[in-house]
Design a protein around this nucleic acid. Structure first.
Lengths: 248, 248
DNA sequence: TAGGGGAACTTGTACAAACAAGCCAGAGCA
DNA sequence: TGCTCTGGCTTGTTTGTACAAGTTCCCCTA
């Protein structure tokens, strides 16, 4: 059962995408929408709050809401899972484990993952037949067995872990910057050493906040970009100075 | 006058940062909080929704909310303004206009900015005395005069334009990726040609959705990173395939 | 004609109440 | 001991009401 406000949001989104409410135009007032959908004003507010969070509409007190864009951005757990993102966008993609081994955790890893032993996996992932991503992931020990049992060419690790042990990657913290390709990365990605790579480092946790993995992903320049919309007052993305530590 | 739910959120945030509610612990239930603050449950929900949007707490239906982190991330309009971000974090910073000229808009710019003539400005910005950012900004014609009247070493363009013409940069759309430094960028930033740069392209608009500027910012690698928190179900950041076009 | 003053409209905040849906621990059973 | 299952707790959804605060635009006046 989908919530009412989500259905209303979906209809409004549709009206925006199809041009019923063109970019730059005013959205009907909350009262109008409430009447049209026979819903309470609060429910309508939840719906338009969704659209505002997606960056489709902007609002400010006293003035009618304005349509800001019409680009459909689904963005589910897309930042977590390369495979889910690629599939949702209709890309051909693949993945291959290059190396995989257990080892004792470094001090930093032990602190981050609350784990003494870790499983380190190096994966190479491709998009449309081209290698685009080198993924160095360190899993906490309680996850290691489930990961080791995955096939080396597993397409979607996120999905496989959900199916096998019911694990949900619920929260993530990400740091995005640029680095030069080292010799190894360069060979894997088929670029020259020193080429620019887009790096995404992340920690992923369960619903309970328990750390699952720590990953360093490097994209070939030009293959992938990150997109974000923000508005004054609600701004999820933040700039950081360039020292490398993740935690506080 | 600050809203009630914002004050409650501030108190809760404080309790999280100071360890009254440690990372990993459960937050009191909405009913408890409502009683403690003598507020309605709806008001408390607005407060914790703020914290959830900041990534400080996670929630799922049926279970108590859990404290996920305690890093204070203010993130106001920080993505818009380099100066505001730097000042808020106590960095020494500066800026200098390198070149500035009016010209007719290219087809792409005309479409993006809804403007036939544009003002193109190249700025070099520094952090802690080191050049870290090359900013190539194209302003719409109706903005050009106000920008031209700014001093060449203007610290905060955002702030100056607000003071002079009351302009508010309300919404932004951003694309983040990595590129190699060209000869010009390399010279300005003091790095070798081909070095990795973190690129942020953005369109900024007013409250009404009117485009103000289109900018291509390039950071020296290692100087700045972007940080984001996400949770399943609420994910503002999105990955995009690597063709360069901004719009749909 | 330019400007001030409102009135009407619109979004933001707050409260109250009820039910739905999901989680969890403890009681009870095999 | 180990399992299920139920009942209480907790968050999610929806409706309704009232007032606050900001915007817009028209009308009236100087």
């Amino acid at each position: 059962m989908v919530a009412r406000y989500e259905r209303i949001a979906a209809e409004l989104r549709d009206d925006i995408v199809t041009g019923v409410h063109p970019v730059g135009s005013q959205l009907p007032s909350e009262a109008d929408l409430a009447a049209r959908y026979s819903a309470a004003r609060g429910t309508v507010r939840q719906a338009v709050a969704l659209l505002a969070a997606e960056g489709l509409v902007g609002s400010r007190q006293g003035a009618r809401r304005i349509v800001l864009g019409n680009a459909r951005s689904q963005s589910f757990a897309e930042l977590h899972s390369f495979a889910q993102w690629a599939r949702a966008n209709g890309y051909r993609f693949g993945g291959q484990v290059i190396t995989q081994r257990r080892r004792t955790a470094t001090a930093v890893e032990a602190a981050r993952l609350a784990s003494d032993e870790v499983l380190e996996v190096l994966r190479l992932r491709s998009l449309e037949g081209e290698p685009v991503l080198v993924e160095r992931t360190v899993y906490a020990d309680w996850m290691a067995r489930a990961v080791e049992e995955l096939p080396p060419d597993c397409e979607s690790v996120t999905r496989a872990l959900y199916d096998s042990v019911g694990l949900v990657f619920a929260y993530g913290e990400h740091l995005i910057d640029a680095v030069a390709a080292g010799a190894h990365d360069a060979r894997l990605l088929g670029v020259r050493r020193g080429s620019p790579l887009l790096r995404q480092r992340r920690i992923t946790t369960t619903y309970e906040g328990r750390p699952v993995e720590w990953s360093d992903d490097r994209y070939r320049a030009g293959s992938v970009a990150f997109s974000i919309r923000n508005s004054i007052g609600a701004n999820p993305l933040e700039r950081r100075a360039g020292d490398l530590h993740f935690g506080p």
